[in-house]
Design a protein around this nucleic acid. Structure first.
Lengths: 235, 235
DNA sequence: GTCTATAACCGGATAGAC
DNA sequence: GTCTATCCGGTTATAGAC
């Protein structure tokens, strides 16, 4: 191998380990999609990847960790579409709605096994818990996306609360996904209607926040958020 | 056994089956408390209850189902304290705060294994999911409690939204518990501070809701809630 | 030191006899 | 209703290959 080839951190040819690792991820994703999370056994994943079970565990500490790959894929796909939406659309409500619709499209193929994802996500001990260190990167990227959604929009946002809004939108977005999990309607029509309704409400609230009448509410909410942040930082 | 004894559905002496059942529950609760959910094995539960594993499964479809007993105990204990608070206190904010504090006291002994509870609660397939048929009864009772919290208070609540508030307070209360799950601070000080802050905000919002300025927001929120309810009824 | 494989462990769940 | 025996799959111990 030439020096040049070694230097370019190419995506395809990496260490043998990396290749094995991605073979495992691929077969896991594939099996999850086809069989669902529960029905997919580590033995099957290993077999399809052409490695031993023990070897799979060398790369991934648990079956749950395999799901982290799902997070990344979802976020990456979503970001592409979202970026395009932000580019072409200035209206906050439309942006929000289209971006959430896009998210639903991206996650659709995983509906069958996403339940597990959230089950884990709510468990304080799970590595998939979005508030854990291990998933910090994914969360932060996602939050940044919502920051951009707000940034170029035509809406006036009070300065004090501006810094908090991306986080809040991220949580809103998590709530939508949680609802989607339980949604068995045709084409997830119910979740889409939920998006229609709630996005309108969310934007309405954001607009209202500038109103002087709501100043005390805004201030106490800010105090709360600040404290939550301090706590998070302290641990 | 006399006819009289058969008629009085006494709590203590019931069928042999019921006795076995409650022996199993008791040893489960005991072990959960001492060891936590994960560390408690069905084998241990069965052993302590003096039955076989298979027999334990005759009464409880899964280890998770054993947790339902926890739900009941928690709610029952909480209700006693809560009722007393409602009796002696008219101010909504104080009521809410004290009732949530009481909840934290009641669930404290279970902090170690409650994680599992919520993990399951977020899983659409779990019998413990609060939106499932199996836990409907517990949820409804809990909601009724919040209806009483609102009812006798001194606060004016717009008629249209009044019917929805108990449900919303129940969700708020679930959110607090979710936070508590992650809280490892001394005496759950952080959760208590969260209650202090959020209860104030919640009451502030309830008061604001009567304001004409917020009528459109209130109306769209009501539309949303109505639709959610229709959906739930339809499935 | 990085990677891979085999065998075993453990505990939730089930089958089927009594 | 109750038991014993067994299955099944996530996970780990451990030994060795590159």
């Amino acid at each position: 191998m030439s020096q040049a080839e070694q230097d370019t951190a190419s995506t395809a040819k990496t260490t043998k380990g990396e290749q094995t690792r991605s073979r495992i991820v691929e077969s896991a994703m594939h099996l999850f999609r086809d069989l669902g999370y529960d029905a997919t056994t580590m033995r099957a994943v290993a077999k399809e990847a052409g490695v031993s079970v023990g070897n799979a565990y060398y790369y991934f500490a648990s079956k749950e960790h395999l799901l982290q790959a799902y997070y990344h894929e979802v976020h990456a796909s979503h970001e592409v579409v979202a970026e395009e939406i932000i580019e072409n659309e200035r209206d906050l409500l439309t942006r929000l709605r289209r971006i959430l619709y896009a998210k639903l499209d991206v996650i659709e193929p995983y509906h069958r096994f996403s339940g597990l994802l959230f089950k884990s996500a709510a468990d304080p001990k799970s590595p998939l818990n979005p508030f854990h260190e291990e998933s910090r990167a994914a969360r932060e990227e996602s939050t940044k996306l919502f920051a951009r959604v707000l940034d170029g929009s035509k809406i006036k946002i009070p300065q004090d609360i501006g810094a908090e809004l991306p986080d809040l939108l991220w949580m809103y977005n998590m709530g939508i996904v949680l609802y989607w999990l339980h949604d068995d309607s045709e084409g997830r029509a119910r979740t889409r209607r939920l998006v229609d309704h709630t996005s309108e409400i969310v934007v309405r609230i954001i607009k209202l926040l500038a109103n002087p009448l709501l100043r005390p509410l805004r201030k106490s909410t800010l105090r709360l958020l600040k404290e939550l942040r301090d706590i998070e930082g302290a641990r």
